[in-house]
Design a protein around this nucleic acid. Structure first.
Lengths: 194, 194
DNA sequence: CCGTCAATTGACACAGTGTCAAGTTACGCA
DNA sequence: TGCGTAACTTGACACTGTGTCAATTGACGG
């Protein structure tokens, strides 16, 4: 039945998620996922036509489970652009480590895979519009630092808060997530708030 | 003879470089490289034992041809930390587009390939020590902005000037390289110089 | 008890990397 | 002039991982 099918589907998604996080998205094969889900390799293909399809579905699944939308409500409820910025860094900075593996995998195949690119861009445009909201709020309060235009500020903020930047600072430089959030808040305020 | 061997080797390196830049490192196969170099696929293996070996050698080759060391002399000759920072952004910012393809390819396989990781880390540690020199200069002049420690400033500067950040701003946000350099100078001064 | 749907099993095609062995070409040197 | 060697070619093959296909099993509901 549908519930049974859903169970297997969910099993696959969970297995994919788990393996992606464990191995940071590197060298996770369809057969590994099948084994982890306790089913045959071919059964995976009954639910997801390609590896990229599975990757995209897992991304959406992880988003749902983690409830990014729910968490971002704190940001929209902020009283000022400054508060929104602080809240955003908190939410986003705590969200990134949870999607580390799957995001890394998506990022890696996005160059060659249309579906992966789509899943990634989807997530990124959401993130970018979050940054844009903050910039607009700062601007309307007259607190956006001089020299920045609406779009250049949004884009620079988006890049500063990108997955890649987070990954470099935490994984390659060894910063703790708390450090990341602290320093990032500091540099963002210094840069964008007057 | 050796000169002939060198010629073939150079042909391969040039072909690899060219293809990597053309396709931004995506989908460049050994057979493509061989064809572009005008030799058989197997001949490539006579000079480079694996794909990663070739990638690493091409990186070194590109570095030599481009003469990064030479260009960085301008930085070491700067009179102040501030001048060094400005010069560094100029040199590095004009260097990045020239290594776009090969750097992207290296970055992509570095997770799975030890040799690629080594080649990348080599380049990165050079870049990081460049940042460190600037931070030290600023610090000795008493012009390093408050709150930053020696290492946190170096690391943050390194990340701001990373290939990934450059790629996001130029490729994904569509900034021109001149824009990148201008804005990057602005944010770096604002952040690190008091 | 039959039909259906999920899942299994095992085989296969395909692409790309890397290996191997045998044959060819070119060039320096006796 | 011809020999030997090193570079290169040719064609075959093993291996891994993805995706496909067909035949079969097993469970559950009508």
């Amino acid at each position: 039945m549908s519930s049974n099918a859903l169970n297997t589907r969910t099993k696959i998604l969970n297995a994919t998620w788990k393996l992606m996080e464990e191995r940071r998205g590197v060298g996770v094969r369809m057969s590994d996922i099948a084994k982890a889900a306790g089913i045959s390799r071919q059964a995976v293909y009954l639910h997801f036509s390609t590896r990229v399809d599975l990757l995209g579905a897992t991304t959406k699944y992880v988003d749902e489970i983690n409830g990014l939308d729910e968490r971002l409500k704190v940001v929209t409820q902020a009283k000022s652009g400054f508060d929104a910025l602080m809240a955003y860094v908190d939410v986003w900075g705590n969200y990134l480590p949870e999607i580390h593996g799957i995001a890394g995998a998506l990022l890696a195949v996005r160059e060659t895979d249309e579906a992966a690119k789509a899943a990634w861009d989807d997530c990124m445009s959401c993130h970018q519009s979050g940054c844009h909201d903050i910039v607009k709020a700062l601007q309307s309060e007259g607190r956006l630092a001089a020299n920045w235009t609406d779009s250049s500020a949004t884009e620079m903020m988006w890049v500063l808060l990108s997955f890649q930047t987070w990954e470099q600072l935490t994984v390659e430089c060894g910063w703790s997530n708390a450090q990341y959030i602290t320093w990032m808040k500091s540099i963002l305020v210094q840069t964008f708030v007057s």
